[in-house]
Design a protein around this nucleic acid. Structure first.
Length: 257
DNA sequence: ATGCCTCAGCTCCTGAGA
């Protein structure tokens, strides 16, 4: 039996709900992690998603952030945000689905190196790492996916020279990303051949998508036990071609028997 | 250009995103 998992920053679930439902109808996934819901918990469209055949866990926030985990089978052992890390912002939702530990996360943007928001991003990343370390000790089968707001290297950047050491591309952010890898995780997308300019986000401005000016900042990291079952992992750019798209595209991981 | 586009909100401008 196969299993599919995906992550998608929808940039307002209120605006994007029809596209999410369309995408789910065309792509039967077992788990979908959503980021940037931009709605409060009372506004979450649980009924529409239930009608589409999905259970949901959600952790919303007014105006900004907000995350959800949709699943074909009910999720258990739910954790919201990083335990022990005081945070006003709703960024993490973790649960067990079909024996798989799934963490969906919306990493802080960071705005610019040296800013207060960058400092918050660094502290958040440190806290996330220590918590993920503990989760890994308890759950060999784990997937950490979401909008990381960090590129791995030049391959993930449309203009590596022009964007050198700018937000999402700084050495400091990449060291934090590498530290997650060093916990025993693997970037699932890079396990498989990918097209040129394989990005997951494109700026709304200046026809970023059409001009292939993007970044790969949405990632699916997997443990060795999950890696051994992975048969495919890729960005699905189709929804970025919609009339009023999110600036991010989904990333989909397929697991075999 | 400290912009460009998109979204939310104490909405006709501002903050934030990336």
């Amino acid at each position: 039996m196969t299993m599919k998992l995906a992550t998608w920053n929808v940039n307002s679930l209120t605006v994007r709900l029809p596209q999410v439902l369309d995408w789910l109808a065309a792509n039967t996934v077992d788990v979908l992690a959503l980021q940037e819901l931009k709605l409060t918990d009372d506004k979450f469209p649980a009924q529409a998603l239930a009608d589409a055949g999905y259970h949901a866990q959600w952790f919303g926030q007014k105006t900004y952030n907000g995350v959800a985990l949709l699943s074909k089978t009910p999720a258990t052992d739910v954790v919201k945000n990083i335990p022990g890390f005081e945070d006003e912002q709703s960024r993490v939702l973790c649960a067990t689905v079909n024996g798989l530990r799934v963490i969906g996360a919306y990493f802080p943007n960071g705005q610019a190196p040296g800013s207060d928001k960058f400092d918050y991003k660094m502290r958040w990343l440190t806290a996330l790492r220590e918590w993920v370390r503990a989760e890994l000790a308890a759950h060999p089968q784990l997937v950490l996916m979401g909008d990381y707001n960090i590129t791995f290297d030049d391959l993930d950047v449309w203009d590596p020279e022009g964007l050198r050491e700018t937000i999402h591309c700084t050495t400091e952010e990449r060291q934090h990303l590498q530290a997650l890898i060093d916990l025993g995780l693997t970037d699932a997308v890079r396990l498989f051949p990918q097209p040129e300019k394989n990005f997951s986000w494109w700026d709304y401005r200046d026809f970023g998508f059409r001009r292939k000016r993007g970044l790969r900042i949405d990632h699916v990291l997997v443990t060795e036990a999950v890696k051994s079952k992975a048969t495919a992992c890729a960005v699905d750019v189709t929804p970025r071609k919609n009339e009023r798209p999110s600036d991010h595209a989904p990333v989909v991981l397929t697991l075999g028997a």
